[in-house]
Amino acid sequence: MTTAFPALGTTAELLVTDPARLGAALAVLREELAAIDAACSRFRPDSEISRLHEAAGREVRVGPLLAEALAVALRAARLTDGVVDPTVGAAVRALGYDRDFALVAADRHTSVSNVANESFGTAEVANDSFAASFGRAPGWHRVLFDPVRRLVVLPRGVHLDLGATAKALAADRAARRIHAAAGCGTLVNLGGDLRAAGPPPDGGWLVALGDDHAAAVTRPDATVALHRDGALATSGTTRRRWRHGGRTVHHIVDPRTGDVPEARWRTVTVAAKSTVDANTASTAAIVLGAGAPAWLERRHLPARLTGVDGDVVTTPGWPGEREAA
């Protein structure tokens, strides 16, 4: 049994092996998504992370969920040597991604700061003379964080973007809670960030892969099986794209430059034990470009990388897949 609904600027999909438990499972998922949005959304002035930005330069005690999300983001930065860095917030905003896409789509022509893209298609910035001022991200190491006491000092001028890792964290948390509460197998899919928990259906959860996670079900590039307590995450540059400064840009930023990375991969899907780890690796791979396959292989992470020209590279351990006809 499955259900889907809009959440976190993308589509949330929930599957359970016991149809009778879908209602209870859905309630848990909605609760988790509402909590992560209230803690981590940079588009909500009332979110906890927005209040943290307002208190820049001062010591702030944050709530348990934001502390967990911040710890996850800083761990991702540490494990990738800063290739995935939460301090890219200012760079992402400078590129024009300063509002939730769902809101921007309804008001895309009102001002230069309000333009981005919908799930499909590309939006034009109202004034291409408005160009981003690129520069290296401040760096994750500048964020002072005591995870035990949940104390944070965010330096002035440093803007956090926890979007990717926070969404992956939500998938991990929700799948674990749903399995514990419902007692059946479950699969949570948040815009291509997937986490399975509990006994899967016979043959595993069949996951359709493609440039567009919403269209992949009917037009998959390939299909793989996800088994008990596994995770997959796909990062790509084909959906969240818009025009800015006379060129096409997207939502993944290279912290080393503050700009979008050189185009090598269209999508990267990584399998890992947690959605957070899979998402961290898939995002890093987009930024690393040509060096991504070797980087993933050294970390023993199975992955499928689709190049901008359509070439497909897999790393050792990637599961057997059924190619689309």
Rank of each mutant, 00 (worst) to 15 (best):
A12S: 06
A27C: 03
V28C: 05
E31F: 01
A34H: 11
D37Y: 03
D37Q: 07
A39E: 12
A39D: 09
F43C: 05
D46I: 11
H53I: 03
G57D: 15
G57H: 15
V60M: 08
V62P: 02
A67K: 06
E68L: 01
E68R: 04
A69N: 07
D85M: 00
A91D: 04
V92S: 14
A94G: 02
D98Q: 15
R99C: 11
A105D: 15
A105W: 11
A105S: 15
D107F: 14
F120C: 13
T122W: 12
A123C: 08
V125H: 13
S133P: 08
F134N: 03
G135M: 13
R136S: 01
P138D: 10
R142G: 10
V143I: 14
L151E: 12
P155Q: 02
H159F: 15
T165S: 01
L169V: 01
A175N: 00
R177G: 00
A180P: 00
A181Y: 06
T186Y: 03
V188P: 01
P200N: 03
P201C: 06
D202R: 13
G203I: 12
G203Q: 11
G204H: 02
V207R: 01
G210V: 04
H213P: 15
A215H: 13
T218P: 04
A222E: 10
L226M: 05
G245R: 11
G246Y: 14
R247V: 13
D254S: 10
T257Y: 12
D259G: 08
A263Q: 11
V270R: 10
S274Q: 00
V276K: 05
V276G: 06
D277Y: 03
N279T: 05
L288S: 07
A290R: 14
L296Y: 11
R298L: 11
R298C: 12
L305R: 09
G310P: 09
A325C: 10
